[in-house]
């Protein structure tokens, strides 16, 4: 009676080795995705300099298309807003009322809040800081709370 409740050694070994074998196969397969995920990208860097604060006069909103950002300055406060449409990734144009997307007609106000069209969420704001060399440095990998300005 007591013997029947015990797991026979052979089937226990079968189970353990199967799990080990199958587990290593799964882990090896998943490791491929680690390989496929680039650690460094060769395209545009996420952190870059956009020039000295004087290049952005108070009250200006200047789009830097290559970087897909818009630099807005009010008084001595600077903000960097993404110009990649949150709908399907087109580049939004700076307009009088804010931003408008040429692809599918999404419209945003000056702070990047959606005012019309299919865009699902507001344009993100990126971190901007003065670098030690006196130039403004933008980090598009760090999104900050919209409405947070950096004082220069």
């Amino acid at each position: 009676m007591k013997e029947s409740k015990e797991v026979p050694r052979r089937s226990l070994l079968t189970w353990v080795s199967s799990v080990a074998l199958f587990g290593s196969a799964v882990i090896s397969a998943l490791a491929n995705f680690v390989f496929l995920k680039p650690r460094a990208t060769y395209g545009a860097p996420s952190r870059f300099s956009i020039g000295r604060p004087e290049e952005f006069p108070p009250g200006s909103r200047i789009a830097i298309e290559q970087r897909r950002i818009c630099v807005a300055r009010e008084g001595n406060q600077v903000a960097v807003i993404s110009t990649t449409c949150t709908h399907l990734g087109c580049i939004v144009a700076v307009s009088d009322t804010g931003f408008s997307c040429p692809c599918h007609g999404s419209r945003y106000d000056q702070d990047g809040n959606v005012t019309g069209g299919p865009a699902p969420k507001p344009l993100p704001w990126y971190q901007v800081k003065l670098a030690p060399n006196g130039e403004l440095e933008v980090d598009t990998s760090v999104e900050i709370k919209p409405g947070t300005y950096y004082t220069v």
């Binding site: 680039p38 990208t41 395209g43």
Partner: peptide, 23 residues
Amino acid sequence: TYAPFIGQKIQFLLLGDNVVGQE
């Protein structure tokens, strides 16, 4: 990217970058 949680990651893995480019 509209897939919740993993959408952004799938796009990054597929494109090898944040935008469509050489990768």
